[in-house]
Design a protein around this nucleic acid. Sequence first.
DNA 1: GTACTTTTTTAGACTAGCCTAAATATTTTT
DNA 2: AAAAATATTTAGGCTAGTCTAAAAAAGTAC
Lengths: 227, 227
Amino acid sequence: MLFLYMQISLTEENYIKAIYSLSVKDSSEGVSTNELSNYFNNKAASVTDMLKRLADKKLINYQKYKGVELTSKGLKVAIKIVRKHRLWEVFLLEKLNFKWDEVHDIAEQLEHIQSDELIQRLDKFLGEPKFDPHGDPIPDSNGQINSIKAKPLIQFSKKGNYILMGVCEHSKEFLQHLTQIGLKIGDIIKVEEINSFDHLYKVKINSKQTQFFSSKVASNILVEVKK
Amino acid sequence: MLFLYMQISLTEENYIKAIYSLSVKDSSEGVSTNELSNYFNNKAASVTDMLKRLADKKLINYQKYKGVELTSKGLKVAIKIVRKHRLWEVFLLEKLNFKWDEVHDIAEQLEHIQSDELIQRLDKFLGEPKFDPHGDPIPDSNGQINSIKAKPLIQFSKKGNYILMGVCEHSKEFLQHLTQIGLKIGDIIKVEEINSFDHLYKVKINSKQTQFFSSKVASNILVEVKK
DNA sequence: GTACTTTTTTAGACTAGCCTAAATATTTTT
DNA sequence: AAAAATATTTAGGCTAGTCTAAAAAAGTAC
């Protein structure tokens, strides 16, 4: 049980989180150096540097040229950050009345505050929520994630009725776009047609007016089949 | 109005805040290099380094060997940090039910979160409090500080009745000590005797049992004369 | 399987923020 | 006002995290 209180810098935390979310996104294999340098808008050389450091700390499994994945220790760190991020998002929305496209940047800062006690009390204060405002599950204090059956709409590629459960992409631009087209968590999306050429989705939201989703939208919203 | 969004690093913010609070403590003249290196438990050479950087950014007035004071720009930054710190302390105490000696370390982290919108909403959420749990005034969004007439008990050096309005020293150790001797904001302190040799204060708290304050306690509690 | 392209790593350099050791100012003592 | 003590600054070095340029590995094409 030594090294339990190893210091992880803010930058290291951000790398761990990035590795986690990139590997969740395309759950195939490890995350590549280039994926990370794209994500951070920095140079591949900088990423390599950091990967060495994280490997030294046993937070990732790293072999030259082979990409990277989190160790169980790294995964714990990642999940804790995700838990903090999502709890703070709930706080910002429900208590401070921010809108869902405004909270991400602030939560990115708050997620690095170090205090287990704080996060436990915040959780209680918010009523131990299970999902954040974007529909993402909030890991519990043991790192257990309430898995959801939702998948990106594009993966179903079938007509039918779906319920919007969350989003994959959290940028302000994307969330504002969804707000603009009048889409929010819980809405019912009826897919009436999928164009085979450009993958445009013809849909009805809550049985109202007909709309079209680009494949970009379809691949970034998480839906469940409506029973 | 250029340079309004100049970047100030976390470390720089901490120096600004330290310069502010040290210059408030003994309002005589500027703050010396050694005072700062004591405060941060680092070396005087490191302080000199940083003072040069802060002077370059016009946050302090600095002349070699002459000590340092905040410019009006630096003062604005300092007061904003203080405002954030104290609002977060109120949040931690009133909403998350922390005890008053537990909140400081967490607030030290939270005070660096960058978002004017956040702090404005937090203020509103907390009911626009004027004082923090330690009795310190919370600056308003224009940097106006609700000044208080309280001074450290030791500065009165006279028998009489006082009201505890706040503390100068915010360390966990000190606050726990106060809790232990049963002292909290609002208590009435009757100074019955001040020993001229060792400056020990013989006092009664809320007309109960007789106690003794060391000069260390007397110099770190803020009191008002009771009318 | 040799040549071309892309990805990744290495080597060397830069900044912020810290350090130690030595030099220089300032203050205090006498 | 000279000597001693203290405070402060300079010079040079270290680490984390970034960069550029060049080298090496992996992947793709013919």
